[in-house]
């Protein structure tokens, strides 16, 4: 009896999990499907799910019209560059806060997080002017720096949480073993925090990849990443849903594939510390 109950319990949870997963995934699936429809099929009422004439014409049009590879490269440089730069700053910062906390460490952490609570548009003009006077409008350099700053609180917070889980004894052992602070971080702390750092990196790359405020506002032609590529297919006057879907699919495909292959790391990293 009890065994039967656990089996049916398990079944219910599995079904619920699948329903939830499917619900979350549905918009992405719909976008991908729409990208293979004609514009007329894309808006047909009632909508068609699979039963349509599959076509690649939207992808061809998008290829012809846009320089996908340039946008793609810009996205890669901005998301990966900002993440690496962020880690360079965040690892020592999180180390200090996790292992040598001061009286105000908690306040500093909260303050950093509070900067994320302000709507970005509130600092739009000052930052725009700063970037402009530095002569960095429409440059990848500016976006790498800005995206790094935007996500730095999150990187530091995540790393801080991971570092807190590392026993202080081991770091003291390294110190006793003659490791300088630099070597302690390089040889002991960082390798031990690899799962945490990896998932922080992945999450941050995804966040930077999808960021669509600064990347749109601080770029024009040269440094515009894939967010701008998508935005160029959105139109209030004219139905280009299929082409927009094709552009969106092309923009999210790389990050989706990356997420798929690293999901083990991601899940492990995101639930790190949640289950003790």
């Amino acid at each position: 009896m009890a065994r039967q109950q656990t089996i049916s319990n398990k079944l219910v949870w599995t079904v619920l999990a699948w329903i939830l997963g499917a619900t979350i995934f549905f918009p992405i699936l719909w976008t991908v499907l729409t990208s293979f429809k004609t514009e007329a099929q894309a808006i047909s009422i009632p909508p068609v799910m699979f039963d349509f004439d599959w076509t690649f014409e939207n992808y061809e049009t998008v290829q012809e019209r846009s320089n996908y590879s340039r946008h793609f490269w810009n996205s890669v440089v901005i998301s990966v560059g900002s993440t690496l730069l962020g880690l360079l700053i965040a690892v020592p910062a999180a180390w200090a806060m996790a292992f040598v906390p001061g009286k105000r460490t908690k306040d500093v952490l909260m303050w950093m997080l509070s900067t994320k609570m302000m709507p970005a548009v509130g600092v739009m003009i000052p930052i725009y002017l700063m970037v402009q006077s530095a002569g960095l409008l429409d440059s990848k350099t500016a976006l790498v720096i800005i995206m790094m700053l935007v996500n730095l609180p999150i990187i530091i917070w995540m790393l801080y949480t991971y570092f807190k889980e590392i026993p202080g004894d081991i770091l003291e052992a390294a110190r006793m073993d003659g490791a300088s602070l630099k070597n302690e971080i390089i040889y002991v702390l960082t390798p031990m925090a690899v799962p945490g750092i990896a998932s922080t990196m992945l999450l941050n790359v995804i966040l930077a990849w999808n960021e669509a405020f600064w990347t749109l506002n601080l770029t024009a032609a040269k440094a515009a990443p894939l967010t701008a590529f998508i935005a160029s297919y959105s139109s209030p006057e004219g139905l280009f849903y299929a082409k927009l879907s094709a552009a969106s699919t092309m923009a999210i495909a790389p990050i989706l594939i990356m997420g798929w292959f690293s999901q083990k790391q991601l899940v492990r990293g995101l639930t790190f510390g949640a289950v003790k």
Partner: peptide, 14 residues
């Protein structure tokens, strides 16, 4: 000529 194509409201903002 370099083109920057954007959605109307984004373009207006930028």
């Amino acid at each position: 000529v370099e083109w920057v194509t954007l959605e109307e409201s984004v373009l207006r903002e930028k």
